[in-house]
Amino acid sequence: MPNFSFVLLYVENPPASAGFYADLLGRPVIETSPTFAMLPLTDGVMLGLWSRQTVEPAATSQSGASEVAFTVKDAAAVEATFADWKRRGLTIIQQPQRMDFGHTFVAVDPDGHRLRVFAPEAA
């Protein structure tokens, strides 16, 4: 079975998006060009940021049609991340709340990609 290795987001400006994610996640940008940038996430998984205008085949959906999710330890960590991201000026589209799967909130990046932070419900 192939290994999961990339999350690719189609963005307007890969270098600018790389700067946004490097600052937000505290990860280094390891590759950048006018049409593509890449950051390591965790366990060999990379975040690729590809120019919406040059991706092949051409993208057919808009930003916000899916989510990138980040798991944190507990509800207090959700609240702390929410406060941090709000202070950084991210647009929040869902305030922190408890849902069936745990405590969560959703922000969007400059391209409108949904970024969900959540602490899973205890089993």
Rank of each mutant, 00 (worst) to 15 (best):
T35D: 10
T35H: 09
T35A: 07
T35G: 03
F36I: 09
F36C: 04
M38Q: 14
L39K: 12
P40M: 07
P40C: 07
P40T: 03
L41A: 04
L41V: 06
L41C: 08
L41R: 06
T42L: 06
D43F: 05
D43P: 06
G44K: 05
G44S: 07
V45N: 02
V45S: 01
M46K: 08
M46H: 10
G48A: 12
G48S: 03
L49S: 00
L49A: 01
L49V: 03
L49H: 00
L49C: 00
S51V: 10
S51R: 14
R52G: 01
R52Y: 11
Q53Y: 04
T54Y: 11
T54E: 14
T54K: 14
E56L: 10
A59L: 01
A59V: 13
T60H: 10
T60P: 01
T60S: 12
T60K: 13
T60I: 14
S61E: 10
S61F: 09
S61R: 14
G64Y: 09
G64S: 08
G64Q: 09
A65V: 14
S66G: 12
S66A: 15
E67P: 00
V68G: 02
V68N: 02
V68D: 00
A69E: 00
A69N: 02
A69L: 00
F70H: 03
F70S: 02
F70W: 08
T71V: 11
V72K: 08
V72A: 08
K73N: 09
D74Y: 04
D74K: 06
A75D: 13
A76F: 03
A76E: 12
V78D: 02
E79N: 13
E79K: 12
E79R: 12
A80V: 07
F82S: 05
A83V: 05
D84M: 14
D84V: 13
D84K: 15
D84R: 15
K86Y: 06
K86N: 07
R87K: 14
R87W: 01
R87A: 15
R88F: 12
R88P: 09
G89F: 11
G89E: 08
G89T: 10
T91F: 00
I92M: 05
I93Q: 01
I93W: 04
I93H: 03
I93P: 03
P96H: 03
P96D: 01
P96I: 02
P96N: 01
Q97T: 06
Q97P: 00
Q97K: 12
R98N: 13
M99C: 05
D100G: 13
F101V: 02
F101E: 02
H103L: 00
H103Q: 10
H103I: 02
H103K: 11
T104W: 10
T104E: 15
T104S: 15
T104Q: 15
F105T: 11
F105R: 09
V106W: 14
V106R: 14
V106M: 11
A107R: 12
A107N: 15
V108S: 04
V108C: 05
D109I: 12
P110G: 07
P110L: 07
P110C: 07
D111W: 09
D111K: 11
D111N: 15
G112M: 12
G112A: 11
H113C: 02
H113R: 03
R114V: 08
R114M: 13
R114K: 15
L115Y: 12
L115D: 10
R116W: 11
